[in-house]
Design a protein around this nucleic acid. Sequence first.
DNA 1: AGGATAGCCTGCGGGC
DNA 2: TGCCCGCAGGCTATCC
Length: 285
Amino acid sequence: MPELPEVESIRRSLEQCLARLYVSSATLLRREYCESFNVHGTRRKTFSRDLLDGGTVASLKRHGKQLAMAAADGRVMCIHLGMSGQLLCFSDGVENAPRTHVHAQWTFTDYYNYKKIRLILRDARRFGGIWTYPSFDLLLRERWSRLGQDALSINPELLSRALSGSDRAIKAALLDQSVIAGIGNIYADESLFGAGIRPDRPATTLKPKEIARLAETIRHVLESAIMSGGTTLRDYVNPTGLPGSYQQQHLVYGRGGKHCIDCGTRLKAIQVAQRTTVYCANCQK
DNA sequence: AGGATAGCCTGCGGGC
DNA sequence: TGCCCGCAGGCTATCC
């Protein structure tokens, strides 16, 4: 379940592995997993060139939970991993790569070191996808423009503006990618606990001081999680196969019915925005 | 029109 | 042992 910290870990890992490499092949194995757009933003058939075939990897960018790989000639490929998506790197010749649920694969050639790297995109549940554009500007305009401020660069003023006039539960707002981008169920619960705010409070009832505290806590939680390489609950691993360890620092997520680490009260598990939500009724007001 | 809801999809674990 | 059901949740389409 890649949220912002996991996607950022993947981005950094791919940047290390693939920057400046030549894309010597790109294959889409499941047609409907990828949508390609022309210069007018109109959908059309996907060609291997859309998956950067024949290009050179210039940059890896991220906004919220979405990742973009751009070629030096401007072509860009946006990847969203949904719930179960994985990007995995293998050095050429090593045949321990998973074969199931692979929807796209690439071969990168490193002409300086005479090495080849294979990248595969697997996604069992197929909630993810790939969207390709002829330029980064088009990705920004057609897709990323729908996303709110990236959660890693949130501050009190921006969060306050994003939440203004919304009377739904604060957690529902945090999960809405058009309000703030990158937060999923795990980091929403952890951030609200850290800020001492009940997840079911209508967003409009938050005082400026609480919004400020929440903004700071979100940044702190996400930064800590990135330093731990993200959260691995079941099968998240970065492209080099390394799991994250932030799950060891979870204070509420997945701990419903257990004791609050701060005060010992039994943590409550409720439903907010159709998601299991765990909080401490004593510590969170 | 903002917000709630259903549905997509597979793997896994608990219960019987 | 094996089967069935519920649950996990990011996102979009649809409804209210």
